[in-house]
């Protein structure tokens, strides 16, 4: 049964407790699916939770509200964190989360608008979400609506050239109703980002492309709250939050372990992880 209501909060302790619940979902979902991307889902939990429970203007009872803020999970492989948040908000059924990746499930391997119409976009091919978000931000400007668009990018993802086409366009067009967040967990599929195609100096790159840059610890909820407010207050240029995160955050044996980019926990590992997240 869908309960299209949620209790929003600004209290960091309350948000931290929601984060723990989201992490438990990520572990059980990927464990049940026996595949998926737990590491990059766990690294983004505070970012997604702070957005959905505090920062973003949205209403699960009115998913087609024209003035709702938009969220695009450009790093589509982190679908479990988004599915857990949508279900906890009441957009989608919580009891079906464990059907992730199974035939007929609305919880597809990567976010799919055909199965979950409240998703703002279908993603999964990296590098595309920022441009799509810019399209939404342009539409808001044309329609004189004040909704904001949030795009969550992976660190490996921004190796895609299209990200920088989009970055150049957004600042040139002075698009200030968009906020990009880089989930900088330092690990991609083949290993550590710095050993594959280093992004550094990352903040300088975004600055050179004309963006207002905020760097923080992506697990620090008050810092995230402050950063989203700073981004919203930034006029005349787009803002990016470079969120330094830990891949696999919250589960000791998954933290900083490249293995868990795309490997699901075994039943024993699920049990261990849930103990840590009790």
């Amino acid at each position: 049964m869908l309960v299209a209501s949620m209790e929003r909060t600004k209290d960091p302790a309350a948000l931290a407790s929601i984060c723990k619940q989201i992490r438990r979902h990520i572990i059980t979902m990927t464990g049940a699916a026996k595949s998926g991307h737990p590491g990059g889902s766990l690294s983004a939990v505070e970012i997604v939770t702070t957005l959905y429970w505090d920062v973003m203007r949205h209403d699960p009872a009115r998913p087609d509200w024209p003035d709702r803020d938009r969220f695009i999970l450009s790093k589509g492989h982190a679908a479990p964190v988004l599915y857990a948040a949508l279900a906890e908000c009441g957009y989608t059924p919580k009891e079906a989360l464990n059907t992730l990746r199974k035939l007929g499930s609305i919880y597809q391997g990567h976010p799919d608008k055909r199965f979950i119409p409240v998703l703002e976009a279908s993603t999964g091919s990296l590098g595309e979400g920022l441009s799509a978000g810019i399209g939404m931000a342009l539409a808001a400007r044309l329609d004189k609506r004040d909704y904001r668009t949030y795009v969550l990018l992976g660190d490996g993802e921004i190796q895609e050239g299209q990200i920088w086409e989009a970055a150049m366009f957004a600042s040139y067009q002075k698009i200030d109703n968009i906020c990009a967040i880089v989930d900088y967990n330092k690990i991609q599929l083949d290993g550590f980002v710095k050993e594959i195609l280093d992004l550094e100096p990352l903040a300088d790159k975004w600055r050179a492309f004309g963006w207002h840059v905020i760097e923080l610890d992506g697990h620090d909820i008050p810092a995230l709250q402050k950063a989203f407010a700073e981004a919203a207050a930034t006029k005349g240029k787009p803002a990016v939050i470079i969120a330094h995160t830990v891949k696999g955050k919250g589960v000791s044996f998954m933290e900083n372990n490249p293995k868990y980019h795309g490997v699901a926990p075994t039943p024993e590992e699920v049990e261990l992880a849930l103990k840590e997240l009790a």
């Binding site: 590098g127 810019i134 342009l138 808001a140 086409e165 366009f169 067009q173």
Partner: peptide, 26 residues
């Protein structure tokens, strides 16, 4: 002019911005 988005020589970005505009009702 306010409804023509000159994207520069960046077709992939242009197509994806177009998708975003469509998703927002344009």
């Amino acid at each position: 002019p306010e409804r023509l988005f000159e994207c520069g020589i960046a077709e992939a970005n242009m197509v994806a911005i177009g998708a975003g505009l469509a998703l927002a009702g344009k």
